[in-house]
Write a protein that binds this DNA or RNA. Structure first.
Lengths: 377, 377
DNA sequence: CTGAAAGCGCTTACAG
DNA sequence: CTGAAAGCGCTTACAG
C-alpha cells in the first residue's frame, strides 16, 4: 500500500507536498499554501524563496484533488454521454453542442469533463459518471430508463438535461433526482416532426416511412409497429413519432401503415443497415423522414445503390441540419450551438446565486427546404 | 465558511456523507464504504440495508474527489489545449485526434478532461491545467515558449506531447519536466513539407508562397522574412518551413524570395484575412502551400474572390487531409485518429507498469494528389 | 463479517 | 506577516 510505503521510508518521499516544501524553506505549510494561492499575503522575498525551493524540490504545485476536497469546488463541469465518447465525436450534432458548451465554459476557464457511457463489453466497471470530479452535470440525450441516467441523477449534482428525458417524461416514469430536480434545454420535437411530415404530405406524398432512433435504452434495431411505439420511453423519438402520427392523421391517412424502422445510431454501418432494411420492406414509399441528417445521408446512399433518384423517386428529409448545405438535404434545423450555450449558462447559474427560472427552455426549430424533397415523380 | 456552518448546525447537515449513512444504519463508515466498493465483503442483507438507507438519506455515493485523494487515482486523463476549447472543436484535425484518444479511453471507461488554454481576456485566472484532477496529460501542439506548456510540465504528471514541442526542440529551449521527461507522438513535419513543396516544384512551379501558423506562442500575424523564421520556436511551423526551404534550395531557387505569411488559426476570419494578405503582396505566385486544410480552403475561397482559377491560375496544397475528399484538395495526409490512439495508449502504459520505449513515435504521412494542384497554366 | 484508526494533501479562520 | 489546528470525505490494512 502506497501510503504505508511512504510513511516507512520517510527519507525517500515519493512526491513532495506542501509540508515538504515548508520544512525545506523553514516555514509553515500555511505559508507555502499562501505563496501559491494568496501571493499578496507574503513579502515578495519570502514568496520568491518558497517558489524557488518548491521548484528545486520538484513540487508540482498544490494538488488539485486535495484542494478540491477542501474547497468543495472542482472547477469543471461534466458532460455525460449515453455511449462511448468516440461515438459522440462521430456525430456532428454532438460536436456542435460541445462547441456551444465550451463557448461558455471558456469564459471562466472551466474544464469540460467528458464522461463516457457504459460499454456493452465491460458493464462491470460501473458508470464513469460516479467517478467524475465535477461541480455540475450536463446530461446529453438519454432515455429515462437508462441505468446511466439513474447513476447521473444519483450524484445529486446541479444538472441540466439536454434533449432527453424531458421533464414531463421524467415525471411519468417517476425517476429523476430528488430536491429541485434537473433543469432542461431542448426543442419541441413533436412540433418539429409534425412540420417535417406536413412538408412531405404537402408535396403530395401519400406513402412514407420513418427512420427512427431506438425507443428505449435497450431498444433492438428493426421494425417498430404501432404497439411497440406505444412503449416508447426515450423522449426524442417518442415525441417525433407522435408528431409524425399527428400530421399523418390530420391528412386522413392511416398511421399504422407507415413503416417505422429503428436504427442503432452508433455507427455509419448501423445507419446504412437500417436504411437498407427499411427500403427492403417498404419499397413502395415515395418519401422518407429520417430522425437525423446522418441517417438521411445514409438513406440517400442506399437509395442511389438501388437506382432510386432523390428526390425523383424518393424524397428524403433529415433532422438537425448538420449536413453541409452543399449536399442539398432538406432538414429540420435546430440551434445546436445555442443549445450548448444555454445549457452551460443555466448550469453555471444553478451553481451560483442566480438559478434560472424553473421549467427549462425550448429552442426554436425551422424547416429548411433544399433539393432532397419534391413532389412524387 | 461552509465547514464551520456545517459543524455548528449538526442537526441540519448539508449533504449526507459516509458517516451519516453509517450512523443511520448503525454500522461503521468502513462498512458503508464496503457496501459501495466491495459488495462481496458484506452479507447481502446488510448491503441491501446500507444501500436503501443511503438512498433514503439522499446520499449520492462516495464522493469522487475524496476517493481520489485517498486512492491517488483520478480515473481521468487530461487533454491540454493551447487556446479555447471552442476553437479546438472548430478544427477538424483536433476533433479527429479526440476521436482517436477516446477510442482508447473508452475501453477503460476513463473520462477525458478537456482543459482550455489561456484567454487573452482573462490572463489573471491562471492556467486551468493547474486545477485538472487527472492521472496524466496529453499536451496538444504547443509552442515550447508557451506559459501554458510550462504550467503543464509543472504538474509532473505522466505526459504525452502530441506534435509540439518535439523532444529535440524541448532540449534546445532547455524547458520541459524534470525526471524521465514527456513522451512524444507526432509526424516528421520537415519531411512532409519537403514532399509537399517538391510536388509543387515537380509540376513546374517556380514562384510559390506559404501560409503558415505562428512561429512562437505570441506570434503576430503578417509576413515572416527569413530572419524572423530563424527565430521560430513552435516545432510544427519551424520544421515545415525548414522542409520547404530544403526543397526550394534543392531546386536551385532562392528561399528568401518565397513569401511566408503567418496566420492566427483561431478563426475562419483569420484564415481568410491571412490568405488575402498573402495574395495581395505575392500576386505573381502560381502555387501556394498552406499548413492546414482549413487554411488551404480559405486560400481557395480568396483566389476565387479574385477571379483566379484553381488550379489553372493557382495551385494549392493543404495539410492534414481533413477537407472532404469531394472538395478535391491536394493535401498531405496524416493519420490523426491513429495519432490520438497511440498517444492515449502510450499515456496509459506510462500510468501502468509497462512504459513505452523512450524517444516517442513518428507516424507516417503521405501526399494525396487531387484536383487543386496542376502544372502552371 | 465488522470496526477503530490513520492518513490522502490541502486550505482557512483564527490567534499571535 | 506567519503558524497551529481542524477538517474536507473517503479507503484500507489491520485487529477482532
Amino acid at each position: 500500500m502506497r501510503i504505508d510505503r511512504d510513511a516507512r521510508h520517510d527519507d525517500v518521499p515519493r512526491k513532495p507536498g506542501v509540508v515538504a516544501v515548508a520544512r525545506a524553506v523553514g516555514v509553515s505549510p500555511s505559508t507555502v499554501s499562501n505563496a501559491f494561492n494568496r501571493p499578496e499575503r507574503l513579502s515578495p522575498a519570502l514568496r520568491e524563496r518558497v517558489l524557488r525551493t518548491a521548484a528545486e524540490l520538484g513540487y508540482g504545485g498544490p494538488d488539485p484533488v486535495a484542494r478540491s476536497l477542501r474547497s468543495g469546488r472542482a472547477g469543471a463541469i461534466g458532460v455525460v454521454f449515453r455511449r462511448r465518447l468516440a461515438d459522440a465525436f462521430d456525430e456532428p450534432a454532438t460536436v456542435e453542442l460541445l462547441r456551444g458548451l465550451s463557448d461558455i465554459t471558456d469564459l471562466r476557464q472551466l474544464a469540460l469533463v467528458l464522461v463516457p457511457g457504459l460499454q456493452q463489453e465491460h458493464p462491470s466497471i460501473g458508470p464513469a459518471v460516479r467517478n467524475a470530479a465535477v461541480d455540475g452535470l450536463i446530461v446529453y440525450s438519454m432515455s429515462a430508463d437508462d441505468p446511466l441516467f439513474e447513476a447521473a441523477c444519483q450524484r445529486r449534482l446541479p444538472t441540466v438535461i439536454v434533449d432527453s428525458p424531458t421533464i414531463a417524461d421524467l415525471a411519468a416514469v417517476g425517476g429523476g433526482p430528488a430536491g429541485s430536480g434537473p433543469d432542461f434545454v431542448g426543442i419541441d420535437d413533436r412540433a418539429a416532426a409534425e412540420t417535417a411530415v406536413r412538408h412531405l404530405l404537402g408535396l403530395g406524398h401519400r406513402s412514407l416511412a420513418i427512420l427512427s432512433f431506438g425507443l428505449t435504452a435497450h431498444s433492438r434495431p428493426g421494425a417498430a409497429p404501432v404497439r411497440q411505439q406505444a412503449q416508447a420511453i426515450a423522449s426524442v423519438p417518442k415525441a417525433r413519432l407522435e408528431g409524425s402520427a399527428r400530421a399523418v392523421a390530420a391528412a386522413g391517412l392511416d398511421w399504422s401503415s407507415v413503416p417505422v424502422e429503428l436504427v442503432p445510431i452508433t455507427s455509419a454501418e448501423g445507419c446504412l443497415a437500417g436504411a437498407r432494411a427499411l427500403l427492403d420492406r417498404a419499397s413502395g414509399i415515395t418519401a422518407l423522414f429520417a430522425f437525423s441528417d446522418p441517417l438521411a445521408q445514409a438513406a440517400r446512399l442506399v437509395a442511389r445503390e438501388r437506382g432510386l433518384s432523390v428526390p425523383g423517386d424518393l424524397s428524403i428529409i433529415g433532422f438537425d441540419d448538420t449536413a453541409p448545405a452543399s449536399e442539398g438535404l432538406t432538414s429540420i434545423h435546430q440551434p445546436l450551438r445555442d443549445k450548448g450555450r444555454i445549457a452551460a449558462e443555466r448550469l453555471l447559474r444553478a451553481l451560483g446565486q442566480d438559478p434560472p427560472p424553473a421549467g427549462g427552455e425550448l429552442l426554436p426549430t425551422r424547416l429548411v427546404v433544399r433539393d432532397s424533397t419534391a413532389p412524387p415523380g
